[in-house]
Design a protein around this nucleic acid. Structure first.
Length: 111
DNA sequence: AACGTGACAAGGC
DNA sequence: AGCCTTGCCACGT
């Protein structure tokens, strides 16, 4: 929050998140890679946390590598994100999102 | 200026 | 599948 972080690190992450199409999701790790910051998934979470309200950035389309919402289940934030996702047609099955079906670029979930 | 923390991730057990 | 450890790096104390 507040403070113009380092010259552009957050902005770069935010802009990358803006690229995620409606109805799709991406993991923190993938956003980091797409933003040119490989291995810095944690920084993505920090940047989203610092996201100003009404920014228009689709933060809810970012979930963790397990296909889950990275908020404590049952918490207000969890419900908020789940609602926003459902409004885009993204349904959680057993608390998880099918990356194969909703994953952005589908580069994720390699194994 | 050091230290602990966090909307993560991957690897070991 | 679950828990712990390590790597990462910007932030607030």
């Amino acid at each position: 929050m507040k403070k113009s972080g380092p010259p552009g690190t957050y902005e770069i992450i935010w802009e990358t998140v803006r690229l995620i199409p409606r109805g799709r999701v991406a993991s923190y790790g993938q956003v980091a890679v797409e933003a040119g910051l490989p291995g810095q998934a944690r920084l993505v979470g920090y940047a989203l946390h610092a996201l100003p309200p009404s920014s228009g950035v689709p933060w809810h389309r970012v979930i963790n590598s397990q296909g889950k919402i990275s908020f404590p289940p049952g918490s207000p934030a969890y419900s908020r994100q789940r609602l926003l996702l459902q409004r885009e047609g993204i349904v959680l099955e057993d608390g998880k999102i099918d990356m194969k079906r909703y994953g952005w670029l589908r580069k994720m979930h390699i194994r």
